[in-house]
Design a protein around this nucleic acid. Structure first.
Lengths: 214, 214
DNA sequence: TTTTGTGAATTGCTTCACAGCA
DNA sequence: TGCTGTGAAGCAATTCACAAAA
């Protein structure tokens, strides 16, 4: 019954957006929602919404729509976020500290349980706020990964340090990396990498402005 | 001669990556590069690289490849980053402060010249570091946009405040928004929006782990 | 009626493969 | 020979449109 074959990756990306929007509906006590309504909120067609969800199973009810809380549960299961998972962070610079302070991760089931940096001046220091985490040396990573069963890591170091830090993460047993460094990471195909380059996004917008009929 | 019709958006996204990689080559004194080499560094096929670049013009030299510095110039021109452009930031929370401190933007031609927040406790305060910018009220935005000819804005406020902040930005004359709030912004089609949802990226990785043959 | 799930048609993107230039 | 630029082919994703279910 594993339908998980041949699912377009854009469909997987949108699945996260559906979940986000469904949670908004849930918080405002909406019980059910149609593909048209869900799509409208996200700027997608109703057909797109139905086809995307259908890749993963039959969640809807003809004539009714989708039951919000039921669909939220299903989607979380598919994404693997129905249970909390532990995440580590490499890089305790400005961006790293902001990411730690960001509440959005834990809200979605991801708990940052360890922070690493190579700067001797930072190692041993506490992260800001009430959080009792201390910054550790990259050497301690394998031990922490085992102890806390960590599979995902966030990489927020300068571009020059990124590949070597990624190698360390992979050697320590990390299976997926969210990369904020402006570098294309080379890694085994068994490792999932998702990259966010902040400048690249601004360049996209800059290009759009040039193209748009002014 | 405006080829700018019918360019696949994935090609535009990759254009930024080409530029990033070309700058690496440039910094290591590479003079020319082939589509195969450029693709290899980014995990793309040579044909993809050639086709992408060809959408924008004829930049290569048969038998030779692409001249690095020449191509950098051309790509910057296409992206509109050959001249510095001024950017504003809305939201002086953790993420906003990290983005200000991030050197990567100015390195790519984007200068954050104004910061806004609605929190009266923050207004008037200086941002960290040597930077002399003071946090301003959203009311002052239209004036600043005019004075500094700002077209792009970075939105780093909580999801609940995002749409209203975006409306303010658009009313002030902002033409493109880089949105970090976990919200789909509703905006006129003349406005470009690029959204980065950090949790969504982690969810993608989480899904991959579930699918990968463990 | 309303709204899903889904084959079929369509649109969009990538890869192939080769002519032409250096 | 080495490498680009590009039509043509192939593959992937989206939209259409309708049978079936409530």
């Amino acid at each position: 019954m594993a339908k998980s074959d041949n699912i377009p990756s854009p469909a997987v990306r949108r699945l996260s957006l559906y979940l986000r929007q469904l949670e908004v509906f849930h918080d405002t006590d909406r019980r059910k929602v149609s593909s048209r309504e869900l799509g409208e909120a996200l700027g997608l067609s109703d057909a797109q919404v139905r086809k995307d969800l259908a890749y993963f199973g039959q969640f809807g009810h003809p004539g009714i729509g989708y039951r919000v809380s039921e669909l939220i549960q299903r989607v979380r299961q598919i994404l693997g976020t129905d249970k909390k998972s532990n995440v580590l962070l490499v890089g305790a610079g400005n961006l790293g500290r902001a990411l730690i302070a960001y509440r959005g991760f834990s809200k979605r089931g991801f708990e940052v349980v360890a922070v690493f940096d190579n700067d001797p001046k930072l190692i041993g220091q506490k992260m800001d706020g009430q959080n009792s985490m201390r910054i550790q040396s990259l050497k301690d990573m394998p031990k922490m990964v085992r102890q806390h069963n960590i599979r995902l890591g966030i990489l927020a170091v300068p571009g020059t340090a990124a590949q070597s830090a990624a190698d360390t993460m992979i050697a320590a047993g990390i299976r997926g990396i969210l990369n904020f460094a402006p570098t294309t990471l080379q890694a085994d195909t068994a490792i999932s990498v998702s990259s966010v380059d902040l400048a690249v996004h601004l360049e996209q917008l800059s290009f759009q402005l040039g193209v748009t009929i002014t």
